[in-house]
């Protein structure tokens, strides 16, 4: 179980990294934490000819509040979020999510942006990014572009990123004061990829729910929004019955897939439970 041969570059600056990515195009992959990429290389399911190792580019290692956004650099490791990266409910939600990612050694090494670039259907950060309306900042040798989370995911392990580009940063809008979040997932073992998860964000204003977003992960090719459930919650008081109904709605309208670990029907049931739990967490926060 040894990877196919590749060339390794460890540039010290972003510019060098982007130049390498421009030169090698589809043959190149960015190596950040490597906690997802390296196993797939070990099985030779991924066989990049060139690895552009960004671990020496200190400028990418940041998690900073800037104006109304939280900027997460390409080298920010999962563990960075285990203690709140930002005050308030957003930081608390990110900490809760981070704690469910794999295990401590992998959290110390794997990166937030790497999870989004890898786009595993069961990635906690992918569902989180969708729920929190993240924007992906893609850098290439000759410029930058931003992609909204809703346009980012394009199927299993597939994103809007083009050859020659690198996910330089993920930008999370800082939520309004009335905002609160919730997260729940179901995994068979500690640290496993979840069989279903829900990430919830909503505002409680004047006793009613506003702007709820519910992202579901682990159930299919990519994280999805539970739009029908989100609509159901709008402007309603968050009664237990409403949350149950929203959870049931999310389950009814999602399209879970079957795999080795769970039949689709079971995943649908888990969606109802995870959405219910995440919503309860959010409204009771």
């Amino acid at each position: 179980m040894k990877p196919a041969s590749f060339a390794h570059h460890a540039p010290l600056t972003l510019e060098e990294a982007l130049a390498l990515l421009a030169r090698h195009g589809e043959e190149a992959r960015v190596l950040a934490g490597g906690q997802s990429l390296v196993p797939t290389m070990a099985f030779r399911m991924a066989r990049p000819a060139v690895l552009v190792d960004i671990n020496r580019i200190a400028a990418l290692d940041h998690v900073t509040v800037e104006g109304s956004v939280l900027r997460i650099g390409a080298l920010a490791r999962h563990a960075r979020f285990e203690t709140p990266a930002v005050a308030g409910p957003l930081g608390a939600l990110l900490a809760r999510v981070a704690h469910h990612i794999a295990h401590p050694p992998l959290r110390l090494r794997g990166t937030f942006c790497g999870s989004l670039a890898h786009a595993d259907p069961a990635s906690e950060w992918c569902a989180t990014a969708l729920a929190l309306e993240a924007r992906m900042v893609l850098a290439r040798a000759d410029g930058l572009r931003e992609v909204a989370a809703e346009d980012w995911f394009q199927g299993v392990f597939s994103t809007a990123m083009a050859p020659g580009e690198m996910l330089r940063e993920v930008v999370l809008p800082l939520p309004a004061p009335a905002w609160r979040g919730g997260f729940a997932e179901f995994a068979r073992r500690a640290g496993d990829f979840a069989l279903a998860m829900a990430v919830v964000g909503l505002r409680l204003e004047g006793g009613v729910v506003r702007g709820a977003r519910i992202a579901l992960g682990g159930i299919g090719g990519q994280p999805v929004l539970a739009r029908e459930a989100m609509a159901l919650l709008e402007s309603q008081p968050p009664s237990p019955a409403l949350l149950e109904e929203a959870a049931a709605t999310a389950a009814r309208h999602c399209d879970p897939q079957e795999d080795l670990h769970a039949p689709a029907e079971y995943r649908r049931e888990l969606v109802a439970v995870m959405v219910k739990r995440a919503l309860r967490q959010a409204v009771s926060a």
Binding site: F43, R188, R189, A190, G191, D192, F193, L260, H261
Partner: peptide, 15 residues
Amino acid sequence: LTGTLADYTPPTCAE
């Protein structure tokens, strides 16, 4: 279908 330890799942000390 269970050729990796992500698919064949021995428990950890948490279980």
